[in-house]
């Protein structure tokens, strides 16, 4: 972008063309993002009353489902981090051929419909699914494991969908790390564990925070995967909002719940930005 604006800037004025380039995206955001969000806010404070927020924050059902949603989103983000960080490291340090191969493996499911992948998990994880049958035949277990229609199933399905959102930001940061810094640290007497903890990890933290933020926020809105893999017992707030909007036409309460979700998402994003800028200490 800066190269482009630089080239254009030399031709005609300093900011004019850059601004011209920005008009379309800005208009796009105003019309399709800012305006709908404002409308949503207006819906939630219908007649200037905060009653819908009061209901959303005091009704046991909504509080319980909101908390369950945050809990699942956090657990999914942490599992994605534990799986995604080593994957990103392998991709960042592999030869171009193996990196390409790894990306293909990561991206293929990414381009498949979430619904199809969710049904695929049902075939794999079920009581008589491929996984359990294999375990039973190998004599590893004598009862099928309960991997589906509970929180475990929901976590597996969501982590599968969201893992690329963790890997890509971490990978892009890792690619920029100067590996000679690690050699220098080890040359100065650091063990490889120390070099990782004090050099590599801090340098890749921006990618970790970006990935955590993305995965957490996308998780909050998850909907069909938990409904299908959770056996109906795992309810996320998206299901409630959908029901209020589509079936009961209580758009004000739905908007209030959505605004609360948005506020939490923004809060999490702001928190990670502050951590990143060093306003909060991190050791």
């Amino acid at each position: 972008m800066s190269v482009l604006t630089g080239v254009l800037g030399r031709r005609a004025g300093r900011h004019g063309p850059a601004l011209a380039l920005g008009i379309l995206p800005i208009a796009f955001l105003l019309v399709l993002f800012v305006y709908p969000v404002l409308r949503l806010l207006l819906f939630s404070v219908e007649n200037g009353s905060l009653a819908h927020f009061e209901k959303a924050l005091t009704d046991g059902l909504y509080v319980q489902v909101l908390l369950a949603t945050f809990e699942i989103a956090i657990v999914v983000a942490v599992i994605c981090l534990l799986l995604g960080y080593p994957v990103a490291y392998l991709l960042a340090t592999a030869s171009p051929f193996w990196a390409g191969f790894g990306f293909a493996l990561l991206l293929l499911p990414f381009w498949t419909s979430v619904l199809v992948r969710t049904y695929a998990w049902m075939i794999i994880l079920g009581r008589n699914g491929i996984f359990n049958r294999t375990l039973l035949e190998l004599g590893i277990v004598d009862q099928p494991l309960a991997l589906l229609h509970n929180t475990t199933g929901v976590l597996i399905g969501m982590v599968h969908v969201l893992l690329p959102y963790m890997v890509f930001p971490i990978y892009s940061i890792m690619k920029r790390v100067d590996m000679q810094l690690l050699s220098a640290a080890e040359g100065l007497g650091a063990s490889s564990a120390q070099a990782f903890r004090r050099i590599y990890l801090p340098l890749t933290l921006p990618g970790v925070f970006a990935g955590m933020t993305l995965v957490f926020i996308i998780s909050l809105g998850f909907f069909i995967t938990p409904a299908l893999l959770g056996g109906g017992r795992v309810m996320m707030i998206g299901v409630q909002v959908e029901r209020l909007v589509r079936q009961y036409l209580d758009w004000s309460l739905a908007a209030a719940v959505a605004v609360i979700l948005l506020a939490v998402a923004l809060g999490v994003a702001a928190f990670f930005r502050r951590v990143l800028k060093g306003d909060l200490t991190w050791t």
Partner: peptide, 14 residues
Amino acid sequence: NGKDVQDRWSRWVI
């Protein structure tokens, strides 16, 4: 009665 019963159902099922 759908909406009230649905809320109660959601509470019950989770």
